[in-house]
């Protein structure tokens, strides 16, 4: 484990804790896309099936369990919690997330490293994670005035992806035979999707203004 990978994982963890804080403490999920959260739950459920088949480290297993638990907990809150579900911007969160799932699945059937059940699902989870943020970005664009916690949540998610790219570069130069094209390309696509958001986030932070996305 290198410092970039650790920083990436910690940003990811922190972003989820921010979201849980907002939902659990403030009892509001305003500005949060349920579509994106459902996609993440599906991403983790399909990727971390390897919890049962291979052991890497206690760290890996605990992190995987946390990501699984937190993603399903967030979806549960937004769908079923008496107070939280009322703050959900259902009418604004209209992205057709089902249209992302099928193409990602077909792509995973076509482009993968091994044609086995776990391997195809793992590849599917990478493709889906790359685009899972889209409903959230569309929702942010629509609400325009982004509340602080939601803005920070998306920022730390994007930071997590950026640190992973640094981690891959570092590993490529320090380890032998370390290359993973599918992971890299889907990771690059995913990080690129944050570029526009990052621009406005940093701009509002530098001017100490509330984050506002252009129409």
């Amino acid at each position: 484990m290198n410092i970039f990978r650790l920083a990436g994982d910690m940003s990811h963890l922190f972003s989820i804790l921010l979201l849980l804080l907002k939902i659990h403490t403030i009892k509001s999920c305003a500005g949060v896309s349920l579509k994106t959260q459902e996609l993440y739950a599906l991403v983790f459920a399909t990727r971390y099936l390897d919890i049962f088949t291979g052991y890497i480290s206690l760290y890996n297993t605990l992190m995987k369990m946390f990501f699984l638990w937190s993603s399903f907990t967030i979806v549960w809150y937004m769908r079923y919690h008496n107070v939280v579900r009322r703050s959900y911007d259902k009418d604004q969160d209209t992205f057709r997330h089902y249209f992302l799932i099928l193409p990602c699945f077909i792509l995973a059937l076509l482009v993968h490293e091994k044609f086995t059940f776990l391997e195809v699902l793992w590849t599917f989870s990478l493709y889906l994670e790359a685009v899972a943020i889209l409903p959230q970005l569309v929702l942010l664009q629509r609400t325009r005035n982004v509340d602080n916690l939601t803005g920070h949540y998306v920022f730390f998610l994007g930071a997590y992806r950026s640190f992973y790219i640094l981690n891959w570069i570092y590993r490529y130069f320090t380890e032998q035979n370390y290359y993973k094209w599918i992971t890299w390309i889907s990771g690059l696509v995913q990080t690129a999707l944050y570029a526009d958001f990052f621009y406005y986030y940093v701009k509002s932070w530098r001017n100490s203004e509330r984050l506002q996305l252009p129409a």
Binding site: R5, N60, M63, K114, N167, K180
Partner: peptide, 10 residues
């Protein structure tokens, strides 16, 4: 690329 597939990342 035999061992590069080890999935140690999250």
């Amino acid at each position: 690329a035999k061992e590069s597939r080890k999935k140690d990342e999250l």
